[in-house]
């Protein structure tokens, strides 16, 4: 942890948060909120949580901002202000103050910031740090805990992404051609989008040509080297997805869908989780518990039980990356085109 960095950036973060909530123009608050996330990422890097920083930089700041912008694009930027809200706001302020004071009172009870001897830093985490290498051969403790010790959590975490995608997709998707019950869907669900012109920006397009393949490769690198350096399935997957989003932004939807069609998106998003769960199920059949990778050495070539864990983790990460990539892309497509999949941001 780096104290000075932390204090200044946290103060800045606080400013960002306040600003984001009080700017009238929604675009403004989204932009400021992006800065908020980026700064948060710095704080985490400074606190030694680089995987979190990586994830926040990709998921929170990058893709999150894109989602917000797409939504505002499909809806409106106006945040009207009404006076009769004031009373409610004051009341909520009082409520929040009570909770806040309650929490502030606990602050002194907590171990000091950066105290290495606090219970949270000694009991479980010590075990992970001290045994990760011996038990899994993975130097990045975060990865080993994520994909193995607490792999079950991560499976559901992937599932959350899957759910988010399926949820958003099923909520937003409007099919024009084969809606049999067109009469039942009220005309109000048809949203009047702002007049849409194709903005053909050569510079952005060319830059994306140049960058996208390298981004992709970098993302794959992140997935493949999750054991040794920060990163892994989520971060890699998000960067993969983000690169696709970049393409979709700089081109149009036709291009975007020619890379990954709607059907393929759904297929791949399930496939990713399926890879993860499938590895777990294979463990069943080899006689282990669910997600007990060590039994996989029976089928993986030239590995002992420990290396089997290490390798299975990679397999798992690939599944995660696949799901995350496709769902981020799919969510973006759904959000920015308001479910029509014809034109968008």
């Amino acid at each position: 942890m780096i104290l000075g960095f932390d204090i200044i950036s946290l103060s800045l973060i606080l400013l960002c948060a306040v600003l984001a909530l009080f700017i009238r123009d929604l675009m403004g608050s989204v932009i400021v909120f992006g800065a908020y996330s980026f700064l948060m990422c710095v704080v985490w890097a400074c606190n030694g949580a680089i995987d979190v920083a990586f994830t926040e930089a990709t998921v929170g700041a990058g893709v999150g901002t894109v989602f917000l912008v797409s939504t505002i694009y499909s809806t409106t930027r106006i945040d009207t202000f009404k006076k009769n809200r004031l009373l409610k706001q004051l009341f909520m302020f009082a409520v929040v103050c009570v909770v806040g004071v309650l929490l502030l009172k606990t602050v002194t009870d907590l171990p000091q910031w950066g105290d290495a001897g606090s219970p949270a830093n000694t009991h479980l985490s010590a075990y992970y740090i001290e045994n990760s290498i011996d038990q899994t051969h993975v130097p990045n403790v975060v990865t080993s805990v994520l994909a193995d010790y607490r792999g079950f959590d991560t499976m559901f975490e992937t599932c959350v992404v899957f759910v988010a995608f399926i949820g958003i997709f099923s909520l937003l998707r409007i099919r024009k051609s084969k809606t049999k019950n067109a009469a039942t869907t009220s005309p109000t669900t048809e949203l009047t989008l702002p007049p849409h012109q194709e903005v053909d920006s050569l510079i952005i397009k060319t830059a994306s040509h140049l960058m996208v393949p390298f981004m992709q490769l970098f993302a794959l690198y992140v997935v493949a080297h999750g054991h040794y350096s920060p990163g892994g399935g989520f971060q890699g997957g998000v960067i993969l997805g983000a690169s696709l989003i970049l393409l979709a932004v700089s081109y149009n939807f036709k291009k975007a869908l020619s890379i990954l069609s709607e059907k393929k998106i759904i297929l791949l998003v399930s496939l990713g989780v399926l890879i993860y769960a499938g590895i777990g199920v294979i463990c069943f059949f080899l006689g282990g518990n669910f997600l007990d990778y060590s039994v996989l050495h029976k089928i993986l070539p030239a590995t002992d039980t420990i290396m089997a864990r290490s390798h299975a983790m990679l397999g798992v990460e690939i599944g995660v990356a696949l799901t995350v990539m496709v769902s981020m892309y799919g969510i973006y497509l759904s959000l920015s085109s308001n479910g029509r999949f014809d034109k968008g941001l």
């Binding site: 606190n47 030694g48 949580a49 995987d51 979190v52 994830t55 926040e56 998921v59 929170g60 893709v63 999150g64 989602f67 949270a120 830093n121 479980l124 985490s125 992970y128 740090i129 990760s132 403790v141 975060v142 805990v145 994520l146 607490r150 959590d153 991560t154 975490e157 959350v160 992404v161 759910v163 988010a164 989520f234 995350v324």
Partner: peptide
């Protein structure tokens, strides 16, 4: 080494958050 456990938990929390 910094505490990995809280970081893992928060990875999940971030993903859940964005979802």
């Amino acid at each position: 080494y910094a505490n990995p456990l809280t970081q893992i938990l928060m990875l999940t929390a971030i993903v859940v958050g964005v979802a």
